[in-house]
Design a protein around this nucleic acid. Structure first.
Length: 594
DNA sequence: TACTCGAGTGTTTTT
DNA sequence: CACTCGAGTA
C-alpha cells in the first residue's frame, strides 16, 4: 500500500485523490506537476477506481510521455503489484496527442488509414501543389506553415483567401493521391471520427479516464478534441500553467484553461502553489512580469534568498567572455587556468551540468559557444538539426520504409531515379530481405543506393543501428540518437528558453535581455513576458540577467540597453552590477585633458 | 547530373 | 553576417 499523503503536500494530495468529474490543476513552475500527474494515475489504479487500460494520458512530446510512463510504473512496481501491471502490457496508455490519434485512426479505419508524413515532405507537397496551380512563388517554405496554421483549427480556418483555399485543396489532393496525412491531419481526422456518435460512445467506454498534460499549450483543434473525448461531467483531468504558455506562434492559446471551466460541468480546480524549485525572490520577480498575477501567489519552500543579478555589457563578445569567466569561477576553475583556487566567491562549487545559458534566439548562443570553447569549457547545445533533413539519410530512410513494407508511392517517387525505376527494381530486391536484421538491412540499402559506406555520416548511422539491431522505425531511432541533451553529462547547457521549458538548473544565465531580443520585435508582448517568466523560473539557486549595448543580429545592428521587462521587476529583488571597464583602454584618458 | 553563383532570408518547435 | 535555395552552365 502506498502512503499517498506522506509523499504529497495537501494540495497535491487533493489533486491526486480527486474522485469524480472534471479536474483542473494549475501547476506553477516547480510545484510537482509531473509528480501529481503520475501519482494521480497510480492512485486511480491502486484504489481500483480505474483499470489501467481505461486510462488515457496525453502529452505533447514523446519525452514527456516516456517520463510519465516511467514514473507510473516505478510507483506501482515498487510499492504495489497488481496482476495488471506485472503481466506487462496493461500499463495505462500514455502517449502524445499525435501518437494517440494515429493509433486511433489505424484501429478505427484499418486498411483505410493513411501514413503520416513529416514537415519536410508536407512542405515539398505544398510546393508541388503551388506549382501546379501556377501560383506565384511567395515564400518557398512558408506555404506549409500557413496551411498548418489554418489546420490548427477544427474545421480548418481559412480567412477567405482564394489562393490559399485553392492551395489547400490542391495540397490535400496530393496527400490523398499518395495516401498520406500530415501531422495536423492526424488530429483533424481523429476529430472527424469522433463526430460519429457510435465511435464517440465506444471511445467513452474505452477510456472513461482522460488526463492532459501541458494544457496551456493546446491548439484550438486539440481543445475541440479534448472536448469530444469526455462528457461534460466526465473524468477528465487537465494540468498546466497559463503563465508558461509560450507556443502561441504555433497555434496554442492559453485561453483554453479558462474555457475549461465553462465547457465542463462542476470543474474542481486545484492550484499547486508550493514551489520546490526556485527561491521566493525569483518567483516574485517572475510573477511581477505577468499581467494576470492576481490569481496565484506562489510560495517557495527554499530558504535561500539570493538576488537577481543584472549585468550590462558593451557587446556580445564581452558578455560571452564574462559568462565563460563566471562559469569558470562557479565550478572552481578548470585546473590549469585558475590561479585563485578555492575561493569561488565563498560559494559551493558546482559542476558544469548545473549551469545553463538561456537565450531568446539560437543565434545568441554563438558568441557564448565561442567563448566557452576558447576557455576550454565543455558545453552542449540543444539545437540538433533534423537528421532526416540530410539527403542521404532521407533516401536511406525512404527505402527502409519501402522495404519494411510500409510502402508509400510517394517514397518511391522521391527515391533517386524515381518511381518507375523502383517499381521495376523492387520485385528483385524483396527476396534479398529474408531474415535480415537492422544492420544487415542497412548495409543492403546502402549497397542498393550505391552510397559510400565509409562516409563518416553513414558509419555513424551503422553504429546507431548496431546498437539497436531490431529497430523497426529508422526515423524514431535517428530522432532518439540525435536528441542527446543529457542532463548528466559534464557540460554547460546552451539552450533557447523554449527548449529549456520543463528543465531546471541551479545556475542560469539569461543573456540578451534587450529590447528587440527579449521582448522579440513584433512578437506578442504577453507571450514574451511569459517567456521571461519561464526563463527566470528555470533557476534554483542563482540567476544572472545580462544585456549589451550593441548587438549585430542577421547583419543588422540592434540597439541594446536593458529589456523593458527588467524595469517591471521590483528594484529590491535586483542587484545591478556595474558595467565592466574596458580592460585595456586604448588611449589613456589624461591625454585628452586640457 | 554536378557544379557555381547571386539573391533572398532570417524567432521560438513538436508531432 | 551566414546560410540555403534556385537558376544557370558545363
Amino acid at each position: 500500500m502506498i502512503d499517498w499523503s506522506s509523499n504529497l503536500n495537501p494540495t497535491q494530495y487533493k489533486a491526486v485523490t480527486h474522485r469524480i468529474g472534471p479536474l483542473l490543476v494549475v501547476a506553477g513552475p516547480g510545484t510537482g506537476k509531473t509528480r501529481v500527474l503520475s501519482y494521480r494515475i497510480g492512485h486511480l489504479i491502486e484504489t481500483g477506481a480505474a483499470k489501467p487500460d481505461r486510462i488515457l494520458a496525453m502529452t505533447f512530446t514523446n519525452q514527456a510521455a516516456k517520463e510519465i510512463s516511467e514514473r507510473v510504473s516505478r510507483l506501482l512496481d515498487s510499492e504495489f503489484s497488481t496482476e495488471c501491471i506485472h503481466n506487462g502490457q496493461k500499463i495505462p496508455k500514455i502517449s502524445t496527442f499525435h501518437g494517440w490519434a494515429l493509433g486511433f485512426l489505424k484501429q478505427t479505419l484499418g486498411e483505410d488509414a493513411r501514413l503520416p508524413v513529416d514537415e519536410k515532405d508536407a512542405g515539398d507537397l505544398c510546393q508541388e501543389a503551388a506549382k501546379k496551380l501556377g501560383l506565384s512563388n511567395p515564400k518557398p517554405q512558408g506555404l506549409y506553415e500557413c496551411i498548418s496554421k489554418a489546420k490548427q483549427h477544427f474545421p480548418p480556418r481559412i480567412n477567405g483567401d482564394e489562393d490559399m483555399e485553392a492551395l489547400i485543396q490542391a495540397y490535400h489532393g496530393l496527400l490523398e493521391k499518395y495516401g498520406l496525412w500530415d501531422y495536423d491531419d492526424l488530429l483533424l481526422e481523429a476529430l472527424r471520427l469522433l463526430e460519429h456518435t457510435e465511435i464517440k460512445a465506444k471511445f467513452y467506454r474505452d477510456f472513461p479516464f482522460v488526463l492532459v498534460d501541458e494544457f496551456q499549450d493546446i491548439s484550438p483543434a486539440q481543445y475541440t478534441l479534448i472536448k469530444s473525448m469526455a462528457r461534460k461531467d466526465g473524468n477528465i483531468t487537465v494540468i498546466g500553467d497559463p503563465n508558461q504558455a509560450i507556443y502561441g506562434f504555433r497555434g496554442a492559446s492559453p485561453e483554453f484553461i479558462h474555457c475549461f471551466n465553462t465547457d465542463f460541468e462542476n470543474v474542481k480546480t486545484v492550484v499547486l502553489d508550493t514551489v520546490y524549485r526556485c527561491p521566493q525572490v525569483f518567483l516574485d520577480a517572475a510573477t511581477s512580469l505577468i499581467k494576470d498575477r492576481s490569481a496565484v501567489r506562489l510560495k517557495s519552500v527554499r530558504d535561500r534568498t539570493p538576488k537577481i543579478r543584472i549585468k550590462p555589457f558593451e557587446d556580445p563578445a564581452a558578455e560571452a567572455k564574462w559568462v565563460a569567466r563566471t562559469i569558470e569561477q562557479i565550478v572552481g576553475g578548470l585546473s590549469f587556468v585558475s590561479l585563485d583556487s578555492g575561493t569561488a566567491g565563498g560559494n559551493t562549487l558546482r559542476s558544469l551540468s548545473d549551469i545553463a545559458v538561456l537565450f531568446r534566439a539560437k543565434a545568441l548562443g554563438n558568441p557564448v559557444a565561442e567563448a566557452l570553447s576558447r576557455q576550454g569549457i565543455p558545453f552542449q547545445r540543444a539545437d540538433t538539426p533534423d537528421p532526416l533533413a540530410q539527403k542521404e539519410l532521407r533516401s536511406i530512410w525512404r527505402l527502409w520504409e519501402v522495404l519494411k513494407g510500409r510502402t508509400v508511392r510517394y517514397h518511391l517517387l522521391k527515391l533517386p531515379g524515381g518511381k518507375d525505376l523502383w517499381n521495376r527494381k523492387l520485385p528483385d530486391l524483396k527476396p534479398g530481405l529474408q531474415g535480415k536484421d537492422g544492420p544487415q538491412l542497412l548495409s543492403y540499402i546502402i549497397d542498393i543506393l550505391d552510397l559510400d559506406p565509409n562516409r563518416p555520416l553513414l558509419r555513424a548511422l551503422a553504429r546507431a543501428v548496431k546498437r539497436h539491431p531490431h529497430v523497426d522505425s529508422l526515423a524514431v531511432l535517428l530522432r532518439n540518437e540525435a536528441d542527446m541533451l543529457d542532463i548528466n553529462i559534464e557540460a554547460v547547457s546552451l539552450l533557447s528558453i523554449h527548449a529549456a521549458k520543463g528543465l531546471e538548473f541551479p545556475v542560469v544565465f539569461l543573456i540578451g535581455c534587450e529590447p528587440g531580443i527579449l521582448p522579440w520585435k513584433e512578437a506578442d508582448r504577453e507571450e514574451e513576458r511569459r517567456l521571461f517568466y519561464v526563463g527566470l523560473t528555470r533557476a534554483s539557486e542563482e540567476i544572472f540577467l545580462s544585456h549589451v549595448k550593441h548587438r549585430r543580429l542577421f547583419g543588422q545592428m540592434m540597439h541594446g540597453g536593458p529589456s523593458p521587462f527588467i524595469a517591471d521587476i521590483p528594484e529590491k529583488l535586483l542587484v545591478r552590477e556595474k558595467a565592466q571597464k574596458p580592460k585595456k583602454p586604448r588611449r589613456p584618458k589624461q591625454k585628452k585633458l586640457f
